[in-house]
């Protein structure tokens, strides 16, 4: 299967290892992976901030870049949600663009759901951890996958020591521009979330969203909490021994 990668700006700059893991895992399962040139951002920061003209410019740009591809996979559920849920309404007044947006929405997939639903991979069966793990459910994955899906992917008949955090879908307080526009609130929310994660006793946190990881890893470091964050693609790649570096 040919797969076009939509790697998203935060993964590109901050978490290239997660991107690399996505490539290696997809190849492992027989996909031919392409990285469409010219891609930048889906426009989500502008959309969420109410700068919809700017978001439209980037939505059209992204449609042009990705519509030649049949299957598009991204490690970020929030960026996929932007494409799937918001592009078409955003372009509602431009019928031609709108239908192009709708076509693109059908072809865009979040990495883990693509693995499970399209490639029929049993993620839980692949994962190997030598320590207890917990996870963060990214709020913007709502509508793409649920917290219970994430939990299922990580639960392998007693093989994975999964420590479920309390209030499993509690927000980390990132929220894009919100994190710098309202830093006091964002940080207070972050500390609530870190308390919940730390209380599990696990030190490895599965987090599939670059923004959330940026927020939580930064907060954990500031507070001296021994939490590490990893994308599920990295977990799968590491378990399969696909990465060149050590995890």
């Amino acid at each position: 299967m040919d797969v076009a990668l939509f790697i998203t700006c935060l993964t590109d700059s901050f978490f290239p290892r997660a991107g690399e893991a996505v490539v290696r895992v997809l190849r492992h399962f027989g996909c031919r992976v392409q990285f469409p040139a010219g891609q930048t951002c889906c426009g989500q920061p502008a959309y969420n901030s109410g700068f919809h003209d700017e978001a439209r410019v980037l939505a059209r740009r992204m449609i042009e870049i990705f519509e030649p591809y049949e299957t598009i996979v991204s490690p970020s559920a929030s960026c996929v949600a932007m494409v799937k849920q918001h592009f078409a309404p955003l372009l509602a007044d431009e019928p031609a663009w709108r239908s192009r947006a709708e076509r693109l929405a059908e072809r865009a997939h979040e990495f883990a759901t693509f693995l499970v639903d399209r490639l029929n991979v049993d993620i839980a069966g692949l994962l190997r951890f030598d320590e207890p793990v917990t996870f963060h459910y990214p709020c913007h994955a709502r509508g793409i996958y649920g917290a219970e899906d994430l939990q299922r992917w990580l639960t392998r008949d007693g093989q994975v020591n999964l420590r479920l955090p309390q209030h499993v879908d509690c927000c980390c307080g990132f929220g894009g521009m919100f994190a710098v526009d309202y830093p006091e609130i964002s940080t207070a929310m972050l500390n609530d979330k870190l308390d919940l994660l730390a209380a599990t006793g696990a030190r490895l946190v599965i987090c599939n969203e670059g923004g959330c990881t940026l927020q939580m890893a930064g907060g954990a470091r500031r507070r001296g909490l021994p939490l590490r964050f990893k994308h599920i693609a990295e977990c799968v790649a590491d378990s399969l021994g696909l990465m060149k570096d050590r995890p």
Binding site: I7, T11, D12, S13, F14, F15, P16, R17, G19, E20, F35, P183, E184, S186, T187, L190, N191, L214, Q215, A217, G218, G219, R221, R222
Partner: peptide, 14 residues
């Protein structure tokens, strides 16, 4: 003010 910021990776994904 309330958290550290990870620096961009030495090599970007692209």
């Amino acid at each position: 003010a309330g958290r550290d910021l990870l620096r961009p990776a030495p090599r970007s994904f692209r």
